[in-house]
Design a protein around this nucleic acid. Structure first.
Lengths: 116, 116
DNA sequence: TTGACGTATGCCGATATCGGCATACGATGG
DNA sequence: CCATCGTATGCCGATATCGGCATACGTCAA
């Protein structure tokens, strides 16, 4: 039996956006297509570093590239973010409720302390 | 200079939900509080495995625990998911637009091929 | 073809991650 | 106090990740 370091899909959208720098890249790309060098410079990272992050983003489909002369322009394809948005949205009704629950929880704690 | 394996916060909410099993745990907890053993059994994982995932979820604040006699009940605190929902929501208007852009992109490809 | 520019890839070291297992910890009941 | 149940932690091996660096690749211009 061969141990795995990460279950199932080691490279899905959730994983891709777990990296802060990759999220920054996506944000920048909302303004339009950009070459790698420009992205790297704006984010204060090396060109190879930016290329690697873009590779991950491309493999999960969040980014696409097209040749523009000598350059290669990267553009946003945000459709892959929709499942993440919807998944988190499934917890929307708990955002308010959990405040109440937390209050109840705190009340329980107080009461427990008094009983001791 | 000490190299880092992951930039900045190695344990934020984005990272916590990057793990499929941890997402499953959160989904299960929507039905209410549960002890570790029950979660482990329902998800087909070992008890130590479940405990470790719950620890990560607790450290990022997505889950809280309270003692209930001999047991320890884990409950959902979904407030931390809100930033993720909002961040992805920032790309909402690109979900439809990217369809168009993709079409334009495909058109460009066809045209490029014809020109060659 | 050769050179220059833009970009991708390969290798490395340090570290983080995950599953599996054994075992320690903690609380309850007898 | 002692045993038992529920849970957490520690250690291990395999692998993934990230940054830095050098360098290969590809394209255009002269």
């Amino acid at each position: 039996m061969v141990p795995m370091a990460r279950a199932a899909t080691t490279s899905d959208v959730f994983n891709a956006i777990a990296e802060p720098q990759r999220r920054q890249i996506l944000v920048l790309l909302r303004a339009g297509e950009r070459p790698v060098t420009e992205l790297a410079q704006e984010l204060g990272m090396t060109q190879p570093g930016a290329s690697k992050h873009l590779r991950v983003l491309r493999e999960v489909g969040l980014v696409r590239d097209r040749k523009a002369g000598k350059q290669r322009l990267y553009g946003l394809d945000a459709r892959g973010l929709r499942p993440v948005h919807e998944w988190t949205g499934g917890f929307e009704r708990f955002w308010n409720e959990s405040f109440d629950r937390l209050d109840a929880y705190v009340q329980d704690l107080k009461q427990t302390r008094q009983e001791e």
